[in-house]
């Protein structure tokens, strides 16, 4: 005799323990990135290869600065949570946990470094009187 009803087995957080939260988060952040990526590629593509003053002036403008901050924050969270999926396929136990922590740490270091660089460029831009 089954003590769990069909409904009880179907409702809940499943084997992942977090239900569909991860999948939904990846979809939502993916859609957000899809809107931002084409414009951001254009800004970065046209700024790469210019001199330092142009780079600072470009990224001290509100639109490129905010868009780049969004791309890095949303993109790196999307990267870290996406990396969890392949880690769960190829690694298990402590190795999986350690690799996940390493991937999340790498993502946070990239986020913090980019935000620091953007903030400083906005500040230098203000000093240069670009805005």
């Amino acid at each position: 005799m089954r003590y769990l009803t069909d409904r009880k087995r179907a409702v809940g957080n499943g084997a992942s323990g977090t239900g569909t939260e991860h999948h939904w988060w990846m979809s939502a952040s993916g859609v957000a990135l899809a809107f931002m990526i084409p414009i951001w590629l254009y800004i970065v593509g046209t700024t790469l290869g210019t001199d330092q003053q142009t780079v600072i002036t470009t990224f001290s403008n509100p639109f490129p600065a905010i868009l780049t901050a969004l791309i890095v924050v949303v993109g790196m969270r999307h990267f870290a949570k996406g990396a969890e999926i392949w880690i769960e396929d190829y690694l298990h136990g402590t190795a999986a946990k350690a690799t996940k922590i390493a991937m999340h740490s790498l993502a946070y270091v990239i986020i913090a470094t980019a935000l620091y660089a953007l903030g400083k460029m906005v500040f230098i831009g203000l000093l240069l009187g670009a805005n």
Partner: peptide
């Protein structure tokens, strides 16, 4: 999805250099 991070690291390093000094940027 995982490979892109290499380019992101290079790009963020380049942004950091631009915000640091002319020598480091060069």
């Amino acid at each position: 999805g995982n490979g892109i991070v290499v380019g992101v690291i290079l790009l963020v390093w380049w942004l950091l250099a631009a915000a640091t000094s002319p020598d480091y940027f060069n």
